[in-house]
Computed example of a mutant assay.
Amino acid sequence: MDKRLKTVPSAKRLLFNHIAELGVVSKAELLTSMSLTSSTLTRLLDDMVAEGLLQLSGLGHSSGGRRPLLYEAAPDYGYMFGIEISRVSSSLGLFDMQLNPRSLIHWPMDEAMTPERFIQHVHLNINAFLRDHHIAREQVRGIGIGAVGPLDRERGIIVQPLHFPAKGWVDLPICELMEQLTGFKTILDNGANAALLGEQWALRHEKVQHMLYVHAGVGIRSAMMSHGQIIHGTVDMEGAVGQMIIQTDGQRLHETGNYGALEAYVSVQALEKQARAQLKTGRSDLSPLLLEQPDRVNFAALVKALHAGDPFVRELFMQSAAYFGIGLANLINVLHPEKIILGGALINAHELFYQTAIEVARKNSYYYPQYEPLFSKGELKEDAVATGAAMMMWRELEI
C-alpha cells in the first residue's frame, strides 16, 4: 500500500481546497456549494483567517444588505518547489499556496548532468529563489518531483529510465538524496502524472473529470485522470504506452521492446533513425542541409528542415503523425476521456503534426462524430510538470 494514502479529508481541508480552486469567494457562495451549517462555516473561516491559511480579499457586491466579505487562499502561508526530471531538459519552480509560480528555470540534460550535479544545481537554485523572494526556510512545505519512469513512488526511487545522456540515474533514491541536501520533505511521481495534475489545475474552472495526457518526445508517456483523480496502476511504467503494438509485423526501435510498437514510429529517436537510413541511400531530392553528415542528423535539424518546407522531412513527420493518431484512437476507444492534452517535442515541432494526429485520431475513434473528445496542447506546456509536482506537495499538506 502507498504510504501516502490518507483518510477522508477533514471539513477544513475540503473547505480550503474549494476556496483555492474558486479563487475569491463569499461565505454565501460557500454555503450553497458545501454541506456545512452557517455557524460551522463561520467558525472554520475565522479559524483559517487567524491561522493565516486564508485572507480577506475585499467586499463583494451587495444583494440588498451589507456587502459580503470575500475570502481567498493566503499565498504566503507556505511555498512548494516543483521539479521536472526529463531526458532532454529539466526545470525547477517555486510556487505559493495559490500555486502561482514565483520563479521558474529550465536547463538542458546533457552528458555532464549526473545525479550528483543535478541535485547540487537544484540546491543552489532553491537557495537563490528563497533569497530573491525573502522567504524563510521554515515557510517551505516541501518538494514535489515529476520524473521519467519507471519509478518506485513509495520509496522515492527512479528505477531504470532509458536514454538519459548522463550515467548514474538507475536505481536512484532521488527523494532521500534531495531531503539530505535541502532538508525539505520530498515526494515523487512520474512526469506524465505531474503534468496532468498541473494542467487540471490550470483548467479547473472547466471542471473536466476524465482527462488523458500524452507526451510524445524521446519516448511516449501517458497519464489518465478519472473523476478528477490520477489513475495509478500496480506498477509505475509511464512509458509503457509506447509499447502499444500498432503493426504486428512492424519494426523495432531498439534491441528491446515490442515489434511494431508505437514508439518505433512516433518518437524523436524513430524519426532520427528513419531519416538517417533514407539519407544514406543517396536520394537526389534531399536537402543539402541533411546530406552533409547523415549519421549526425538530429531532431533539431529535422525540425529546421520541416519549417523550411523540405518535402522529404515533411513526409517523415506526417507519417509519424498518422501513426500517433492511430495510437491516440486506441487510447480513446479504451479510456473515453472528455479532454486529451498533448505535449512533447513532436507535438511542438510543427502545427501540421498536431493537426494531422488529432484528425486521424478522431476518424478512428468509435462513435465518432457522436462522441468527440476535445484536444488541446494544454495551458502550461513546458511548465506543466513542475507545476503539477508542486501541486503534489500542496495536496500533501496537513491542514
Rank of each mutant, 00 (worst) to 15 (best):
H123G: 01
H123K: 08
H123P: 00
L124I: 14
N125I: 10
N127A: 09
N127Y: 13
A128Y: 02
F129W: 04
F129T: 04
F129V: 06
F129Y: 04
L130A: 03
R131W: 04
R131Y: 07
R131E: 06
D132L: 02
D132E: 10
H133E: 11
H134W: 10
H134Q: 05
I135H: 10
I135Q: 09
A136R: 02
R137L: 05
E138S: 14
E138V: 11
Q139D: 09
Q139N: 11
R141N: 08
R141H: 11
G142N: 09
G142M: 11
G142Q: 09
I143A: 01
G144F: 07
G144M: 08
G144R: 03
A147I: 07
A147M: 14
V148N: 09
V148E: 02
V148G: 04
P150R: 06
P150T: 06
D152E: 15
R153Y: 04
E154N: 15
E154H: 11
R155V: 13
G156C: 10
G156D: 10
I157Y: 10
I157F: 10
I157Q: 12
I157L: 09
I157A: 13
I158T: 02
V159M: 15
Q160K: 15
L162C: 14
H163I: 09
F164W: 07
F164E: 00
P165D: 10
A166M: 10
K167E: 14
K167G: 08
G168P: 07
G168N: 05
W169K: 06
W169T: 03
V170H: 12
D171A: 14
L172W: 01
L172R: 04
L172F: 13
L172P: 05
L172Q: 02
P173K: 07
P173F: 12
P173R: 12
P173M: 07
I174S: 05
C175A: 12
C175D: 06
C175W: 06
E176L: 15
E176I: 15
L177E: 13
L177S: 09
L177N: 06
M178D: 00
E179T: 15
E179W: 07
Q180D: 12
L181P: 05
L181C: 05
